[in-house]
Design a binder for these strands. Structure first.
Lengths: 162, 162
DNA sequence: ATCAGTGCAAAGAATTTGCATCTCG
DNA sequence: CGAGATGCAAATTCTTTGCACTGAT
């Protein structure tokens, strides 16, 4: 069976780029941290564990390249750094994110859910959609549960607190 | 009738901030360029026309403040700079954007359209949504039309081109 | 008089670029 | 071999911060 990395290799070759050890190491890190929304610096530190000679500039150049090839998507959650997220194989569109405003966790939604909305936008605004970015900001299930626990405690403590 | 700027003034005061001339000038620029997705630098240059002594740092500080007060939303279209978009008065959620990958134009969608999707996300992922960011990337109606015109020309020119 | 707000310049952080050197195809 | 890729350091770009000063209440 053809591995994920082999297919990425082919994509590089198809666009006449070389598969250098540095690029391979970078891709492997991305594959091993698929759900982690790594920044360039994060990727750099992880790649460095296996290929210590690599430079940060190379990581930036590789991520930029992978972004062009649509192997990764560059995303920005508003915290000053770009993050790089592997695109699901065969996914027509980019997946969505749930950003928790309490704990900062970022979860992924692979389901598209936007078909209806996109149909409306395409027809009503006459806009040919090629891709999308959808992020929800709110309270994740974990923080939600935590708050409920504290809420129970809070009921008892209310008399003492300010 | 109470003006938009008066209401922003009240919001500032409610949070015990002053509406200084610099802040007022900044807000006015935002009001006058409501659809323009200005960067901090853009705002700075525009404010400078009316209040030449203002410093860039003050603009950054004001925009940050307005962002905290939810008067503006800070957005990022992936071009390295943050942009600041006035929130519609009374809008529960942030509006959406259409970014044209041909000409770079950014149009706004004030309609929410996400009610159904949000209901699904809230129940299926148990995530309490507080806000969202939705951007579509594609070809805007203007570029679309332009391309069709060129397409017609193209049919005639095809024999000559590479 | 106080204290938030300001302007300026310097600092900081993220990313890009120039260039000599190396290496994949 | 030779174009493309790399590593390093310097340069850029965007944004934040320190600090002395100003201006309202």
């Amino acid at each position: 069976m053809e591995s994920r990395i082999d297919r990425i290799k082919k994509q590089l070759h198809a666009a006449s780029y070389k598969l250098t050890p540095q690029r391979e190491a970078t891709v492997r890190v991305l594959l091993e941290h698929e759900e982690d929304h790594l920044s360039a610096e994060d990727v750099y530190l992880l790649v460095k564990e296996k290929a210590p000679e690599i430079g940060l500039a190379t990581v930036y150049r590789t991520l930029e390249l992978l972004n062009e090839l649509k192997v990764v998507d560059k995303i920005n959650f508003g915290d000053g750094v770009s993050r790089y997220d592997l695109r699901q194989e065969g996914a027509a569109h980019f997946h969505h994110h749930l950003v928790c405003i309490e704990c900062g966790a970022v979860d992924e939604i692979q389901e598209d859910l936007l078909d209806d909305v996109e149909a409306i936008v395409e027809s009503r605004w006459n806009f040919k959609i090629k891709d999308h970015r959808l992020t929800f900001h709110g309270i994740c299930s974990r923080c939600h549960m935590k708050q409920e626990e504290e809420g129970e405690k809070g009921d008892l403590e209310k008399q003492h607190a300010e």
